[in-house]
Computed example of a mutant assay.
Amino acid sequence: MTQTTQSTVRPTTRPVGPPKRAGFLRRLAQQKLAIAGLITLAVVILAALFGNLLSPYNPDATSLSAVLLPPGSPGYLLGTDELGRDLLSRLISGTQVSLMAALQGTSLTVAIGVTLGLAAGFFRGWVEKIIMFVTDVLMSFPGILLAIAIAGILGPSLSNAMIALGVVLAPGAIRLVRGSVLGVREETYVEAARSIGTPSGQILVRHILPNVVPPLIVYIAILAGQVMLIEAGLSFIGVGVQPPQASWGAMLSSSFAYIDRAPWLAVFPGLMIAICVFALNLLGDGIRDSIGKKVTR
């Protein structure tokens, strides 16, 4: 007598989020430019964390007897500014401000973009229409002018400038997340989850969100550099960090009056901005190439 065993056929197709960690790290380690960017960022982060220990002087301490000293002067490795403040100490202090700005602005942008992008791509209908209408309206304005207007209304400060940046840059994140959601919401495993009555929130967290993470990681790395650059611009025109707090953008702004007599006042903060933004872009490109395009199977 033959015994027949019945088994329930279950769908084997399921989403996977980011590639396996070991494979991803191995591919990233082969990206020499990305590793160079990562090392550069690690040095900058360490300088920000231990800035109080590394700074030879108080970054806000003035000395009228040491005004506009050139780099290499005794006791002042990178020279001094128009008030006799040590430029190296102010650069280190500005590192803390720039990293805090990148963290605040990027976090706010991603939080808005992920929340509204998931809602627009998954629920569609009137939810998508309202979200995308507001997104299109915001994108129709020049970004930097809108950021200046919002920061001007809220008042000049680093936090208010980052709120302005979060609003201005959110449409790009919303579009990215929405596009990723639209690419997977009709997949078989999502339809199967719907058919058995899985709550929408669980579908979003378990099946949709893991497929949004890979392109979002790349976007975050590049976005952080963009936020850092715009923050420097806002501080340059006076709606970001306020004196006497050190900021690379504010240091650039104050250096213009002395550009012919003390060009180093503009060179060093400008170089720091360029290095950090370049390193973030290199890291973002390396992560993109290491992740690859296929995120579901």
Rank of each mutant, 00 (worst) to 15 (best):
M1W: 06
S7T: 14
R10N: 08
T12N: 11
P19S: 03
R21Q: 13
F24L: 15
R27A: 14
K32L: 11
K32S: 13
G37I: 06
G37K: 03
L38R: 08
I39F: 14
I39G: 09
V44W: 14
L46T: 14
A47T: 14
N58A: 06
D60P: 00
V67K: 10
L69Y: 04
P71C: 09
G79A: 06
G84E: 06
S89Q: 07
L91V: 13
G94R: 07
V97S: 10
S98L: 06
S98I: 03
S98W: 06
A102Q: 04
Q104Y: 09
G105V: 12
S107Y: 01
L108F: 13
T109M: 03
V114E: 07
A119Y: 02
G121E: 04
R124M: 07
G125M: 10
M132W: 09
T135D: 09
L138A: 11
L138Y: 12
M139E: 11
L145I: 14
A149E: 07
I150K: 09
I153W: 14
P156D: 12
S157C: 12
S159V: 13
I163A: 11
A164G: 15
L165D: 08
G172I: 04
V184Q: 03
S200W: 12
G201N: 09
L204Q: 09
I208F: 02
N211D: 03
V213A: 11
P214D: 00
L216D: 03
I222P: 00
A224P: 00
A232P: 04
L234K: 05
V241H: 05
P243D: 05
P243G: 11
A246E: 04
A250R: 11
S253P: 08
I259Q: 03
R261Y: 06
A262E: 05
P269F: 07
M272W: 02
C276E: 00
V277I: 10
A279G: 04
